[in-house]
């Protein structure tokens, strides 16, 4: 009977408007809030972009001041980091970061993908609905707690096992990081594997394949793009992780020549030194440049993921 005015069509509402002014006000108000909130939502997303711009400008601006006093080649290629003597060679941190990330992926990728395959292809449903939330628990543990456990449990263990006097270093850091990025990689690979159409598997089974053959010859190749995305995401997490690494790596500015050499990576060096430096010093600029490098690497990896995804859409 009494239809509310906002549920009428436009023309009807104009009729109503001409007769009752109070209802016209309501209509105007509704239109106004509609427009206001659209503006607000747009503002929100622009604010997000503004934050990204802030990050790039603030870190980049300070970072590039490094090259007023330092040459490009000294910063990137020199292995001598001795700020007290004006040597700012970040090359060793860059190489250490690469070693650590590589080692982490070497440990983590096979296990994570095995878990993803297990979840998607082998585990019965009851086990699946159990293991997935448990993996999420792993994401919830703060990185500082991982670092603390690495320091108090893993390092003494490594010390006993190998007879090293310290135990800090690449191996400990890589083990801790592997556990941290395991849920990231396995969860996304799991989704990618689950998304492989069932008919592919059925066709392979019909040709007489065993399940192992289906997994390795059909499912993993078909899901490879998703798996690569998962690995890259895990990699960004490993490169940017700070607190867990800083507690187990030993924090000494030297190249990691063995698995047990106390060393330092980009993130751990920044967090150990940034609070103690003068704002207007080359030291501080160099630390900002290292942060800018981290930023550039993560953005680059994200662009690679986007490229992979776009290619996937085109091929599908």
């Amino acid at each position: 009977m009494s239809t509310p005015v906002h549920e009428l069509t436009k023309q009807q509402s104009i009729l109503v408007n001409s007769t009752t002014t109070s209802k016209f006000n309501r209509m105007a108000r509704v239109r106004l809030t509609n427009r206001l909130f659209k503006g607000y939502f747009l503002f929100s997303i622009l604010a997000l972009c503004f934050v990204l711009a802030l990050v790039i400008i603030f870190i980049g601006k300070t970072g590039f001041l490094t090259f007023n006093t330092l040459s490009f080649s000294e910063f990137f290629l020199s292995m001598n980091w001795a700020p007290e003597e004006d040597h700012f060679g970040a090359g060793l941190f860059i190489i250490n970061t690469m070693i650590l990330t590589g080692l982490t992926l070497l440990i983590s990728v096979p296990i994570s993908i095995a878990i993803a395959v297990f979840n998607a292809e082998i585990a019965p449903n009851w086990f699946k609905s159990f293991i997935r939330p448990v993996l999420d628990l792993l994401v919830g543990i703060p990185s500082i707690v991982y670092g603390y456990l690495g320091m108090t449990v893993l390092i003494p263990f490594i010390r006993d096992l190998t007879g090293e006097s310290l135990g800090d270093g690449m191996l400990a850091a890589a083990l801790v990081l592997s556990l941290m990025i395991l849920p990231t990689i396995s969860r996304i690979s799991d989704d990618a594997i689950t998304a492989v159409p069932k008919k592919y598997r059925e066709a392979a089974y019909a040709l007489g394949s065993t399940r192992l053959q289906v997994i390795f010859k059909i499912v993993i190749p078909a899901a490879s793009r998703g798996i690569v995305t998962a690995i890259i995401l895990g990699m960004t997490r490993a490169i940017g992780e700070t607190m867990a690494v800083v507690m187990v790596i030993g924090n000494t500015a030297q190249l990691a020549t063995t698995l047990f050499t106390p060393s330092s990576v980009l993130t751990s060096n920044i967090v150990m030194q940034i609070s103690n430096v003068e704002f207007d010093s080359t030291w501080n600029y160099a630390l900002h440049m290292m942060a800018f490098l981290l930023l550039a690497i993560s953005v680059l990896l994200i662009l690679i993921i986007r490229f992979l995804r776009a290619k996937g859409v085109k091929e599908a």
Binding site: V55, G240, T267, A291, I302
Partner: peptide, 10 residues
């Protein structure tokens, strides 16, 4: 994807 340490520096 920005590492948390970079937000700290910001």
């Amino acid at each position: 994807s920005v590492p948390s340490i970079v937000f700290g520096m910001l």
